[in-house]
């Protein structure tokens, strides 16, 4: 059944859209990730203009993060003060990202930037995640338990040397506000140019760089993602008019159903097996994007509108 999307200005099969939402929702429910890094490339592969894919996916991630954030909120799993600092950084980053996005779109280089960003970040994050999970699987087989680090040694010396220290009670941290501001800003840029929530960068940064306790990491990152993707949606709406609400709602509809099934499947697998599978999937998307950049295209020419005027 074709459905005309008035903002994207193209006709798509409604079942294909809901199906894509369901598949990505299934995977994100299973692995406990946002799924933006899968959805945006998938939309681009099916012929949605990259600018529309990125902006619309920001809109969908806002929706997809709400219920998770609420659940963590009820469990006291959100460090609001840390979240606000991360959001402040994210707002600046998202604004910068959206400006860069608009500028590159007018030059016809936005597709290249999206591909390069995906190859770079998915490649490095996926690679690290894969190595780490393989190491964990091998350790479990041999029955070795890693010695836990003492809490005082969590931070490197340069982190303690930063100014503007702030106390974050819920995370039991006393660190410079510059660090979460910087992380938030970096994630905000990624959100605006890649159409992702940025959890795949933010969660490791919160654990390994900030040393936040794991019980507040996911809730706080979802809290930040809601606000930053909402801002990103507004920036893209104003700059390029590429947010398609209808596409976003249909994708969400599929994703909600898929996530329910995925979450049940995920319970049957071990955490490090899940991480290894997720890493493989991340690397697969990365390779596909990289492959398309390196291989000579069959059609060297492309046609587009003049972009942002």
């Amino acid at each position: 059944m074709p459905l005309y999307l008035p903002i994207a200005e193209l006709s798509m099969n409604i079942f294909l859209v809901i199906g894509m939402g369901a598949v990505v929702g299934f995977l994100s429910g299973m692995f406990g990730v946002g799924g933006g890094f899968l959805m945006t490339p998938l939309l681009i592969f099916t012929g949605v203009p990259p600018a529309v894919a990125v902006a619309t996916e920001s809109n969908e991630i806002t929706a997809a993060s709400v219920s998770g954030a609420l659940a963590h909120w009820r469990r006291q799993g959100v460090d609001v003060k840390m979240g606000i600092v991360l959001i402040a950084g994210g707002a600046v980053g998202s604004f910068i990202g959206a400006q860069v996005f608009t500028y590159l779109r007018s030059l016809g280089q936005v597709d290249l930037m999206i591909s390069l960003a995906y190859v770079l970040f998915l490649g490095s994050v996926g690679g690290l995640m894969f190595l780490e999970s393989v190491r964990a699987i091998v350790r479990n087989r041999k029955g070795i338990l890693p010695a836990p680090k003492p809490r005082e040694d969590r931070h490197k010396a340069w982190i303690h040397a930063l100014p503007f220290k702030m106390r974050f009670r819920k995370s039991r941290l006393y660190i410079s506000a510059l660090l979460p501001l910087g992380i938030g800003m970096f994630v905000g840029v990624l959100a605006a140019i890649m159409g992702v929530g940025g959890g795949f960068v933010m969660v490791p940064a919160m654990i390994y760089l900030l040393g936040m306790p794991t019980n507040v990491v996911v809730g706080t990152s979802l809290f930040q993602i809601i606000f930053v993707t909402a801002l990103t949606t507004i920036f893209h709406s104003v700059n390029t008019q590429t947010v398609d609400i209808f596409l976003a709602v249909l994708l969400l509809f599929g994703a909600v159903i898929g996530a329910q099934i995925g979450a049940r499947m995920g319970l049957r697998l071990k955490a490090e097996q899940l991480r290894a599978l997720l890493a493989l999937m991340v690397l697969l998307v990365c390779f596909k994007m990289g492959f398309d950049l390196v291989v000579e295209p069959t059609e060297l020419f492309s046609v587009g509108d003049a972009g942002a005027h």
Binding site: P6, I7, N59, E60, T62, A63, A64, S65, V66, S67, G68, L70, A71, I226, A230, T233, I234, F235, H236, S237, V238, Q241, V243, I245, A248, V249, L252, V256
Partner: peptide, 25 residues
């Protein structure tokens, strides 16, 4: 979307927040 892009963006966010909340329920 083209004449009132800022308000369109706000609407998109409100739709997303309520749809997300509804989905959670």
């Amino acid at each position: 979307a083209h004449n009132y892009p800022f308000w369109y963006g706000i609407t998109a966010v409100i739709v997303a927040l309520s749809a997300g909340w509804l989905a959670g329920v």
